[in-house]
Design a protein around this nucleic acid. Structure first.
Length: 315
DNA sequence: AAGGTTATCAACCGCCGGAAG
DNA sequence: TCTTCCGGCGGTTGATAACCT
C-alpha cells in the first residue's frame, strides 16, 4: 500500500486567502521551514489543502517575491525566453529573480501574448533592428503545430508543440573515443531511427534521444559536451531542430570562459559550432538559479545570450 | 448612473514523474 | 514489483476591478 491521502477536501476552505490564514502559514513556515505540505495544514491549524498552502507560499508569501511592476528588461527576457522555451513558466521564472511562474504566466496571457501577436515584427530591443517576420511565426508558438520544408532559416522547420514535455532526468555519457563518429553509431539497438535534419536520430519527439547524443566536442574536455542540456525541458520549440539547424551559419558568438576554464571553442574552429550555445544553455538551465543571488551582470549576460539565441531563430 | 463588456490575476484542476510504502 | 501519494507543473476558471457605452 502507498501512503495515506494528503487531505480530504471536505471541510476545507477554498478561494481567496485571508490575512489571518496568510499569517498562520507564514509563521508556521518561518519556524518549521518549507516542505511537508501534506502535514502542514493540520499542524499549522489551517483548513486548507497542503497543495493550496504550497501554492500560496510559493507565489505570494515567500519573502523574496517581487510583485507587479515588471520592467521593460524583464518583459524582454520573458518574451525571449518564451520564444526559446515555450510555456515553461517555471523555467522562465527561474531566470527572473523574485518572479513566480504564475505571475509570468498571467503576465504573458494578459499582456505579452497579445502584444506579440498583434505586433509580429515588433522590435524587441535595440539589438533587434534587422529581425524579420520569422519572429511572428515563433511568437505564436505555444498553440500551433508547424513544420515547414523550407530550410534556410531554422525557424522555418521547427517543430512546435501544443503540449509541453517534461524532461528532468540527467544523462551522463561516457565520452566516445571518436568525436566525429556518426551519430547512428551511438544509438541504442532497436531504437527507431529517422532522418531528421542532416542527422539520423531516434524519434525526435523524444528529447532524451537528443540529450544522449554525444557528438559534441568541447575543446579538450568532452565531459562538458556530454553533460549538455540537463533539464532543458525544451518543449514548444524542438531543441533538436534548433541545434540541427544551420547554427554555424547564423551564430557567431563565443562563450569560452567560465571560472577561468575554456568551455567551448568558437564556431569557426574545427569542432561543431553549436557547442558554445549548448554549454551556455546548460549553464543557465541546470543552474538552480538561486533567486537571491542572481546579479545584474548575470541577467545581462543571460539577456545577451538570449539575443544570440534569438539570432539562431532568424530574428 | 447603470448595465454590459473586457482585463486582470489568484486560485484551482488535472496530469506527470518519482518516491514512499 | 506494484500501488499510492507528493511535489511540481502548465492550463483553466472565476471573482472582481476597470473600462466603455
Amino acid at each position: 500500500m502507498g501512503r495515506s491521502p494528503c487531505c480530504s477536501k471536505e471541510g476545507l476552505n477554498r478561494g481567496a486567502w485571508t490575512a489571518q490564514e496568510d499569517n498562520i502559514l507564514r509563521e508556521y513556515i518561518r519556524t518549521h521551514g518549507e516542505g511537508k505540505w501534506r502535514d502542514l495544514p493540520r499542524k499549522a491549524g489551517l483548513k486548507r489543502c497542503g497543495k493550496s498552502c504550497r501554492l500560496r507560499w510559493l507565489n505570494y508569501l515567500r519573502p523574496d517575491i517581487k510583485r507587479g511592476n515588471i520592467s521593460a528588461e524583464e518583459e524582454e527576457l520573458i518574451i525571449r525566453l518564451h520564444k526559446l522555451l515555450g510555456n515553461r513558466w517555471s523555467l522562465i521564472a527561474g531566470r527572473l529573480p523574485g518572479r513566480t511562474d504564475n505571475e509570468i504566466k498571467n503576465y504573458w496571457n494578459t499582456n505579452l501574448g497579445k502584444k506579440v501577436q498583434t505586433a509580429p515584427t515588433r522590435k524587441l530591443s535595440r539589438h533587434s533592428d534587422e529581425r524579420n517576420s520569422t519572429t511572428a511565426q515563433l511568437n505564436v508558438a505555444s498553440n500551433v503545430t508547424a513544420s515547414s520544408p523550407s530550410s534556410s532559416k531554422m525557424a522555418s522547420h521547427m517543430i512546435i508543440r501544443t503540449k509541453a514535455f517534461r524532461f528532468s532526468k540527467v544523462h551522463r555519457l561516457t565520452p566516445q573515443p571518436n568525436k566525429s563518429e556518426h551519430l547512428d553509431t551511438n544509438l541504442g539497438e532497436g531504437q527507431p531511427i529517422m532522418e531528421y535534419g542532416h542527422h539520423s536520430v531516434r524519434d525526435p519527439m523524444e528529447y532524451g534521444a537528443y540529450e544522449e547524443r554525444p557528438s559534441f566536442t568541447c575543446g579538450e574536455d568532452n565531459d562538458h559536451a556530454s553533460d549538455f542540456l540537463m533539464n532543458m525541458n525544451m518543449g514548444d520549440i524542438c531543441l533538436s531542430d534548433l541545434l540541427d539547424s544551420e547554427f554555424s551559419d547564423i551564430c557567431n558568438f563565443n562563450y569560452c570562459e567560465e571560472n577561468g576554464n575554456e568551455l567551448s571553442r568558437s564556431p569557426s574552429s574545427d569542432g561543431p559550432a553549436m557547442l558554445s550555445g549548448q554549454v551556455l544553455l546548460q549553464d543557465w538551465t541546470s543552474n538552480s538559479c538561486d533567486q537571491a543571488n542572481v546579479s545584474a551582470p548575470t541577467l545581462q549576460s543571460f539577456s545577451s545570450f538570449l539575443h544570440s539565441a534569438g539570432e539562431w531563430l532568424g530574428e
